[in-house]
Every structure is written in structure tokens, then in C-alpha cells.
Design a protein around this nucleic acid. Structure first.
Lengths: 236, 236
DNA sequence: TAAATATGACTGACTAGTCAGTCATATTTT
DNA sequence: AAAATATGACTGACTAGTCAGTCATATTTA
């Protein structure tokens, strides 16, 4: 459909593709298969990042359904069509966003599983990592998105479980098991590491809903939790 | 979201609107027509319930934005327009749904705060109530909706906090305080009753996202949690 | 090196559809 | 019959996704 060109064609400022003398053109047939110019590649990566950043803002402010790609584009200072050069569709953009933000946190937690240190100390370190790397960053918003929308994206939930949660819990279990053997920690925690991570979830959900109504001192709550779990226990 | 806010006559938060003179509609607190013919009132209440039930299905399956009122109507076996005889708009329907489902659970929990029984026993009773009245009912879905969408409905979050959470936590605090004084329970819990309720949140979120991937025995998890919290403790 | 040519990233007007909310009409109740 | 209810076709605001066209930059040719 001819849309309607507003711009008057500039009377051939620069020659449009006139096939011109066939002989000469035929010469350089094949394309050089070289790496794309650095400039373009870099620009491309920047664009992608800008889109993801804008998407994070919009998605966490309005939710997946209500977020408008027009707004994402505006926020990223690009045209809407450009988004589709980088992501197949809205859903893919959403999923890529979560994947991109969540993947990096895995390594850090996993490494902790190895260290052979008193469990309580490890727990306190994990709490610090959580507060600093998740709760005080945009990752908190990403996890909130996961919690809010994950149900409608089973693939995403699976990814999150497989790539993030199960690994963290694996590490956690190792720590807790060692701790339980030394009597530092109740045995039940080994079976339900969720109980160890629960305050992190509470923190994210609570602050999302009631930050103004009833502020929560997340760090202190997590400390209290650790103090309870790792308190010296009587023999049972 | 609502596209255009027209005058939106009549239709309060609940009850069929009296379309009559616009003035009359907004009139008194209580309905003008008290003790309406049984048949009518009953039918009306049924309709309202049917709509709410259908809305719960649709909202929890698709989320607030994606849920279609056409589907709600179909599910309730009524015409779409009928919904608007009972609820002002989609948002009101949503909020009424949450209010209606959540309000009843308050009483039960609050009553527990009074009983003078060992804290652990109370905790186990609360767990039973939670499992039976929340986790094994549709209320679990309602709370999931609250968690997922609450952020975009600050009024609703406030209602939930004021009418539900703060009351439950009040009762919880009373129990925990007594328990702490008797040394049954660590003192930190009094300051952060959230730590007591955390497994409930974990249960709802976890089963929503990972039910298939990694089933969770909620009852046992909650029991483990109670066992940890109420384990005999060494003097500190 | 400069001019000519080719590339593909980028744009945004546009299409095709969706769905909340309305209202003229129909049905039921009194 | 009149009033109260219910219906569902209809409207129009809104938006995901498309694609013909542009233009800055890269590549080739002279």
C-alpha cells in the first residue's frame, strides 16, 4: 500500500539505485564476509541495552499487559519499529529482560556453597549479597515481575527455577547440611531451604505493596531471622 | 485501563444501581428499598455472586489487564451489560472481588489472639486454618492476585493492609509476645511477625510458579517452620 | 583520494484487531 | 401496564506489529 510520502523526494541528491552499466556492476559480485564494523556493532549493543532498560521501567511500572511498546520506544529514544529489529515481539522482549537481569546473580550464590565456613557466617554473607545485589538494585523489580507475571509465562518460570532458584537452593542445601551436621542449624532447614530464603521473598513482596503504609527494615528482619535459625538449641 | 471516564452514572461500589433520577442514586447510605421481595433480592445476590465467581476465574487465570469482561459474562451465563448493573467498571469489580473474599478471614484469625494457650499450639492451629481456609480454597488465588496486582492498586493494597494484614499481625503479635515472655518463642518474632507468616507467602508464590516443576508439601514445610521457631532454646 | 554504489539500521504512519463501556430494545416482575 | 432487569450489538479509544521508504555509513570503483 502506498502510504504517503511526506518528504518530497529530493530530486536525486544522490543517485538512487540505478543499476547502471551492467558490466562494471557485475564485477564485485560477492560480499566480503567480514565482521561488521565495530561502530555498528557497538551501536547495536547500545540500542539493545537502551531498549531493555526502558522495558524494565515500563514493565515494572505497569505490568506486562499494560506496558505499551510505544512508551518503551519513547523512553529509549528510538522508533517503535526498532524494537522489532532486536526482539521478535513484546513477549520475547519481556522474557529476554528477565533472563538478562537474572542470569548474572547465579554465579555469586553458587560459589558460596563451596566455602567451608560456619553456616551462620555464610548466611549473613548471603543476606548481604541479597540486600546489596538484589534488594537495592533493579533486580528486585525483576524478581517482582517474575512473581507477578511468571504464572502466565510457564517457560519463564521454568527457566527461573532451573537456572536460578534450583542452583541457589542447591548451594543453600549444601551449606545447611554441613551446618546441621555440626548442630549449628536445625535439620528441618535442609529439607526446606525455602524457609531460609523466605524473608527475601517477604522483603520483596512487602516493600512492593506496603512500603508507604508500613516500612520494613529488611536488613534487620533478615538478621532477626538468622539469629533465630542459628540460635544455640537444646538437645531434642 | 479505562479508556474514557464518562460520567459513569449510578452504580456505587455494590448493589444494583437505581438508575432513576441521577440524584436519587447517590442518595442515602442504605438502600431505599429495604426488605425487597425475597425473590428479587435473592436473584440479585445470586447474580452478584455468579459474577464474582466468574471474575475470580478469569482474573486469576489471565490477570487484571488481560481478563476480558466478555469472558466473565459468558462464564457467569449472563450478558456483558449485566455486569454493569452490579459493578461500576472492571476495576471496581476487581476490587470488590478481593474485598469480598478477603474480609471473612479476618475474624477467625483475630479470635485466636485472645485464647490463652501455649503459643506453639496456637501456631499449629493457625497453620491449620491457613491451609484449610486459604491454601485449599480459592482464597489462595485471591491472595495471589493481591500480590501480583496490588502494586497497581494502591487503594486496594491499603485496604488489604488495614483490614487484613495489620489485624492478623496484631493478633499474631499478641500471641508471640505472650510466648516470648514464657520463653516459648524467640523475642525477635515479636518485632517481625512477618517471619512467622513468611512460609504462608512462600507457599502461595511457590505453588503458583513451580507447582509442576517442584511440588511443595506446604503443610510439612509449615510444620518444620513451627518446629524450628518453637524449639527449646538455650539461654542466651 | 574522491565519487559512485551498496547496505541495512532506523523510522513512523498505518493496519488489523481488541475490548471496556454504552444504550436502545427485550424480557421479567410487580 | 409500569417498573425493574437483562440483553448484546455497537462504538470508539487504544495498541501490537508491519513495511515502504530514508539516510548515514561502509565498500567499491575510478
Amino acid at each position: 500500500m502506498a502510504k504517503r510520502k511526506k518528504a518530497a523526494k529530493g530530486a536525486g541528491t544522490s543517485g538512487p539505485p540505478t543499476k547502471k552499466g551492467g558490466a562494471a556492476a557485475a564485477a564485485g559480485r560477492e560480499r566480503k564476509i567480514e565482521i561488521p564494523p565495530a561502530g555498528r556493532a557497538a551501536r547495536s549493543a547500545d540500542r539493545r541495552e537502551a531498549i531493555l532498560a526502558a522495558a524494565l521501567d515500563e514493565f515494572s511500572e505497569r505490568g506486562f499487559e499494560a506496558a505499551r511498546l510505544d512508551d518503551v520506544a519513547r523512553r529509549a529514544s528510538i522508533a517503535k519499529g526498532t524494537i522489532y529489529l532486536y526482539f521478535r515481539d513484546k513477549e520475547t522482549l519481556f522474557q529476554e529482560l528477565l533472563r538478562t537481569m537474572l542470569t548474572p546473580i547465579i554465579g555469586g550464590f553458587e560459589a558460596l556453597g563451596q566455602a567451608d565456613v560456619p553456616a551462620k557466617q555464610l548466611a549473613e554473607h548471603m543476606r548481604d549479597v541479597f540486600v546489596k545485589e538484589v534488594f537495592e538494585t533493579r533486580r528486585k523489580d525483576v524478581i517482582r515481575l517474575m512473581i507477578s507475571e511468571g504464572r502466565r509465562f510457564p517457560k519463564l518460570a521454568e527457566f527461573y527455577y532451573r537456572e536460578v532458584l534450583s542452583r541457589i537452593f542447591e548451594a543453600l542445601r549444601a551449606i545447611l547440611k554441613r551446618g546441621a551436621e555440626r548442630g549449628e542449624v536445625p535439620e528441618q532447614l535442609v529439607e526446606f531451604p525455602q524457609l531460609m530464603a523466605a524473608p527475601g521473598l517477604v522483603a520483596i513482596v512487602w516493600t512492593g505493596l506496603f512500603a508507604d503504609l508500613a516500612p520494613l527494615d529488611v536488613r534487620r528482619m533478615m538478621q532477626a531471622h538468622i539469629d533465630i535459625l542459628f540460635a544455640p538449641r537444646s538437645l531434642s
